[in-house]
Design a protein around this nucleic acid. Structure first.
Lengths: 273, 273
DNA sequence: GGCATCGATTCCGCAATACGAAATGGCGTT
DNA sequence: AACGCCATTTCGTATTGCGGAATCGATGCC
């Protein structure tokens, strides 16, 4: 029989490299694989998969359990992962404004991006208070349960948000948003307000406020957040922090070449435009 | 002219996958590349490199700067990197003993492995004191300036330690070991003592004690460390902590199937054997 | 505005490469 | 001791990937 029609074949896709990457992908789903399992999962012959594994292993990206001979991701991927984060140019641009915000508020502040349903911290500055949230570059938080994440989800196509909710919204506290309907409602509010709040949804006693950073096309590409113990985040303090976080976000956006929300000197613009 | 003799050609090395991995490797040295730069650096033709980049990009492992068209590592690598750490089986085995040690001492404790000149934390339990070291999975520390790192370096072939020193030993405090000779001497002492100490070598005011974990072959494969502010790490406290850290390390080693240093019931063995 | 330049992308024919069926080897099980 | 499962190796063939050269597109210079 002839090929079952894959009409739009990409002539620049290298087959053996493609299969290699498919193999690597498998390891995000299951931590160890035997040759036979992988061959079956990918629908490839064992010699083919053997050569692929052999090549990747030769580069130190995979390692085998000396006992069982099963393959697993090696630490070399962790090196690449760190490099990926440190390469974000955003990281360096955002640092001075973040430091200012941390100094003004005394609280931990951070900048993150959305990736695959998680908010990933790419830069953080800790607050000066003894009891404070800890943040570090590379920290990941489920998007539905963080201020950073909700700000970024709010500007995503509805279909993607639904797909995320479909995968299940893990509960962390009694306040975590766990239904698709509640998430949609919360994101609607975020869009209306221009900022997001995590009200002890990830951890009891921790509140965060987040605001969007827009890139040169005006699209939200990242977010800033300030995090503090709930005891220091009463309504009065929140009202005070919101403009501080928002203006930090706008400052970073401007550095990225974002078209300002309101032309400078045009007075107070309608913020519902 | 004929090929310049690469005698031990590996028949199971897939050429195009190999080149793809070489391309990925390039991004650990320089954060962004243009097609032409990569082609020149690898000694490959531009169409070849183009196909490779195209394939990797199609998988979301590379992304292009929309402005300049330059390639950079994408966040997807960070996902793989996290997965690599979380797949360490050591991580789960070590947790209960670590929790016990953290409870007994009240200080932050962690387990790490050596990779490419850095100690990488694969499991951590924070202490209970208000002022304490913060540790998290994935944290990396230069090996020459940490207790974890020095324990693991001590059991490496001398050539590898020298190679590391060759690359330069960054100074963090006035106490950081920065010469190859001093490092060799320090590692010699670690081997003799059976534990390592970081005496404010990474950060002033922070002391750590580390002890080796051995795998089923008896080879040191990881290490445990306890970290505390120097004010809580005076000589008396250190003398108290050393056996606690060591016995935690031995407990974990035994779980990994390590042959005990001294057969159970054989009384106090000579620890210099 | 037109032309030169430089980098990225596409074309195309040739040859090397990667493919998989089947054979082999190693090891734990019955 | 023979079986059966899984990883590894062999080998002939067809496909895939290769690179020189042409094309396209943007940028800068006259």
């Amino acid at each position: 029989m002839r090929e079952t029609a894959d009409p739009p074949r990409d002539p620049y896709l290298l087959g053996s490299l493609r299969k290699g990457l498919e193999v690597i992908d498998c390891f995000t789903r299951q931590k160890t694989w035997s040759l036979g399992e992988l061959a079956a999962a990918l629908g490839q012959s064992k010699p083919t998969v053997f050569r692929i594994l052999h090549t990747i292993e030769a580069f130190g990206y995979l390692q085998r359990d000396p006992e069982t001979g099963r393959y697993a991701l090696a630490m070399r991927f962790h090196t690449l992962g760190s490099a990926a984060i440190h390469h974000e140019q955003l990281r360096w641009q955002a640092l001075p404004p973040l430091q200012d915000l941390a100094r003004e508020t005394g609280e931990t502040v951070h900048v993150g991006i959305l990736y695959d349903g998680e908010a990933i911290c790419v830069q953080a500055v800790e607050g000066t208070r003894l009891v404070r949230m800890h943040a570090y570059v590379g920290k990941r938080t489920p998007a539905h349960a963080s201020a950073l994440g909700k700000v970024l989800l709010a500007h995503l196509p509805h279909a993607e948000v639904d797909a995320l909710a479909e995968r299940g919204l893990t509960r962390f506290t009694s306040r975590t948003i766990t239904s698709a309907a509640a998430l949609r409602e919360a994101l609607h509010q975020v869009r209306a307000q221009g900022y997001a709040m995590d009200d002890e949804e990830m951890e009891l006693g921790l509140r965060c406020l987040g605001a969007p950073i827009t890139d040169h096309t005006g699209r939200p590409c990242a977010a800033v957040a300030v995090s503090a113990p709930a005891m220091r985040m009463d309504p009065a303090r929140i009202a005070e922090l919101i403009p501080q976080v928002s203006s930090t976000a706008q400052r970073i956006s401007r550095m990225l070449g974002s078209p300002s929300m309101q032309s400078p000197g045009s007075g107070r613009g309608a913020n519902a435009a």
